[in-house]
Amino acid sequence: MIATRDAYGEALVDLGKENQNVVVLDADLSASTKTEKFKKAFPDRFFNVGIAEANLMGIAAGLALSGKTVFASTFAVFATGRAYDQIRQSIAYTKANVKVVASHAGLTVGPDGGSHQALEDIALMRAIPGMTVLVPCDGNETKDAVEAAAAYDGPVYIRLGREPVPFVLPEGTRFEIGKGIVLSPGVTREDLLSKVSDEPLFDVAFIACGVMVKAALEASEALSREGLKCLAADFASIKPLDEELLHAIARHSKAIVTAEEHNVIGGLGSAVCESVCSLHPVPVKRVGVKDVFGQSGEAPELLRAYGLTAGDLVSAAKEALKL
């Protein structure tokens, strides 16, 4: 178990060793976002700008326009909410090489409550032209995502969580920007892309990101035990979306269930629907937060209270199949 934010801190230190050009910024949350690990290792390349998120993004843009690879971190609510215009204008419009890596996204922030639980950040970032949006599900995928973001020249948003999460992806799985990952044993991406069949191969396909990937796997196993044919896939790359894989999944499935720790408006579920509806229309159920703000509570309680458990995914799948 490791929180994705901890994996981020470790990945930054590795990056800092390899690449002198990496600069990291934070806004008085370095102990929480884990950029403090980089700060300790490379104090000269770390800047704490204080509680000034707009300035954080502007300084990040200026450093990037001068050739630096910049990681700018704070909580997801403050990064994408307080500094939306700075991300839009100073970073994205300029195509600046800035990676906005935001921790404490979603309900699993827990007791801090609704004011601190970003549930619309994916929607905001996804709507910005040219922005890459990544939501890794575990520590290993986070490290891959950070590395991939650093190797890519342009703005990237990476969404991380507060709570420790188990390693979900099979060993040896490599994340790539723009690629989904098929998680069901015995099924590969290549199989899905090449297979031609008249009958759907799957009753239901779960497409998830972040903490919901594990729930998707559990739901898929539960339904398989009931005799349904299921597929689970991790779509950490929300933008660019792996439309090739998505359409193959849609072609081979009776229904799709999406799962995310985000508002059902504007996140992964929306991205999937927008893409699927035009090429391979298939019933889609979006599991997410139903257009409300969060509240205080412990992370697992909140996931239950807002309908984000494996059980909720199973119910959604059954409903989808009835559609």
Binding site: G58, A61, K68, Q86, S90, T94
Partner: peptide
């Protein structure tokens, strides 16, 4: 630098000045 949304340019300049020093 790309500007137009007022209030952002001095931050960008601070970033550039830091990079210059680095």
């Amino acid at each position: 630098a790309s500007t137009g949304s007022l209030g952002q340019g001095l931050s960008i300049a601070v970033g550039m000045a830091l990079a210059t020093r680095l």
